[in-house]
Design a protein around this nucleic acid. Sequence first.
DNA 1: GAGGCGTGGGG
DNA 2: TCCCCAAGCCT
Length: 331
Amino acid sequence: MGTTTSAAAAPAADDTPLADVLVPWFRAHARDLPWRRPGTTPWGVLVSEIMLQQTPVARVEEPWRAWLERWPRPSAMAAAPAADVLRAWGKLGYPRRALRLHAAAQAIAADHDDVVPTDVDTLESLPGIGTYTARAVAAFAHGQRVPVVDTNVRRVVARAVHGRAGAGPAASRDLADVEALLPGARVTSAASDAADVTLAAPLAAPRDEDAATMSAALMELGATVCVARGPRCGGCPVVRLCAWQRLGRPAWDGPVPKAQTWAGTDRQVRGRLLDVLRGAPGPVTAEALEKAWLTDPAQRSRCLDSLLVDGLVEQLADGRFALPGEAGDVG
DNA sequence: GAGGCGTGGGG
DNA sequence: TCCCCAAGCCT
């Protein structure tokens, strides 16, 4: 855990902290997303973060509104059958997220008085909430000063700070990188021995909220300006501070990630099978599912098994298949 | 740590 | 049409 003064860091053309530019830029240019509006509950923030995992913003907005209207509190969703949850999830993709959100809602209702936890570690212990989502909720819902690192933030930091064309694989170092960019670095209770931290602390510490805004700003910049393909550097508020820019925008030299496959994969088959279940008013026969994938019966069978294992599908005593909880407790 | 897991929009 | 994704998580 050395305090490496990165040799790769290019000399700064401007000493202005990124946050001093990015936070005002965000306040002026942030997209008006529903979960960012005043009055959004921590539960609403949590639901949005789960939905946004690997799903574009544009497809999340309407389902999110409907979701919060139908289940305004964790306990409301917790009481719903999983089948209702999966249908409400619709075609957002990765339906296991819906199941995990369901389980998280039940845990929050049962163990946390129906209140979304504020503590990062507690949040991370909930189903479907990992490193990113736990910190996003802590920062955006509760205003805590914690680094929030997603793929956008890693790309922005890789370029602006490290001068690389893109972010490599996620690394444990990422959190510390972003922590260093947050306004208001403070002496923590555990840092009483670190004199350099004291020296680095500004006289007037910004509020924790400013740190959360900085994280949101980093994400926004990565999502709208510093995008993966074709970054709009001409419209970038921090182009003057960008190490990648300063180095002449060197090309990516690391390993090229393997393209994700799709056609004919188990994922496609699972999606097709689940779509049949979602679209049906109740349990369906094995024959109905067979028709959903005629190309390869063995693959269809394997995928149906995996859906059963994942708890996304149930088989009834009469042999039919249904979304979990759909047939009621008695069957 | 690599691989698996949905979906529909855009270049 | 085909290819590439888009605010991760879990095993």
